[in-house]
Design a protein around this nucleic acid. Structure first.
Length: 215
DNA sequence: AATGAGGTCAACCGCCCAGTT
DNA sequence: CAACTGGGCGGTTGACCTCAT
């Protein structure tokens, strides 16, 4: 049983960062709850994980958001709502926390959206959880699409065959889209770098109903 | 120069799910 | 199969910063 108030809270110090970095350098990521025991760091596992993901990880991009990034976030938010981790996974180098903060402080203002709980679309808790578990497209993924261009994503599958890209779901429903945008419906970060301005256009017209139906 | 208001963003919280024991 | 553990998520908080007065 853990003693209460064993862990520190609040902003991380340089020394704490160094301890965490050293631990990860030696042991790698994961098993966050062991860090306090092994290093004496007075931080809980969750706090360590968050500090690494949001700040210390070398893959995290610092600085202002570019127009391209903002455009992509706006498009994705329009499509899937407050699914910050999913959106962040499509914006290379940005974390869900960064995207969420940037939306709440800049973009919602820019778009004239009043802050509040968005009950639209994928903000529904059930969908949120289901779509959130998406191991095939990790945040730091730079992977290439497999040769047959099939992508399993949380019960739905994207299949590319020649001129068409088809969304297949666990149910019988299918969505087919003319493949005017090449293979841009494959959501790898590399592709996003190249195709960001065009990526979301074919998705803009979709009602989220088809996503919900497929779950 | 002092100070209060508003903005920003790192960090925390509570909940949930998946995997393991 | 239940309990436990690790990890992930979105929402919220609060310390710090900036700026107007």
């Amino acid at each position: 049983m853990e003693a209460r108030n064993e862990y520190r809270k609040g902003l991380w110090t340089v020394e704490e960062d160094r301890i965490l970095m050293d631990y990860i350098r030696v042991h790698g990521k994961g098993k966050w709850n062991r860090i306090a025991k092994m290093t004496g760091l007075k931080r809980c596992g969750k706090s360590c994980r968050l500090r690494w993901i949001n700040y210390l990880s070398p893959s995290v991009k610092r600085g202002d958001f570019s127009e391209e990034e903002e455009d992509l976030i706006i498009r994705l938010h329009k499509l899937i709502g407050n699914r910050w981790s999913l959106i962040a996974g499509r914006v290379p180098g940005r974390t869900d926390n960064q995207v969420k903060n940037h939306w709440n402080t800049h973009l919602s203002k820019k778009l004239g959206i009043k802050k509040g709980k968005t009950k639209t679309n994928a903000s529904l808790p059930s969908l949120s959880r289901k779509l959130g578990k998406n191991p095939s497209v990790p945040m730091e993924s730079n992977s290439e699409p497999p040769s047959d261009c099939t992508c399993e994503t949380g019960g739905k599958t994207m299949v590319e065959d020649g001129s068409q890209t088809t969304f297949k779901f666990a149910s019988t429903q299918e969505i087919t889209e003319d493949n005017n945008c090449g293979s841009s419906l494959w959501f790898s970060n590399d592709d996003l770098n190249l195709l960001t301005p065009y990526l979301m256009e074919p998705l803009d017209g979709y009602s989220l109903d088809f996503v919900l139906d497929g779950l």
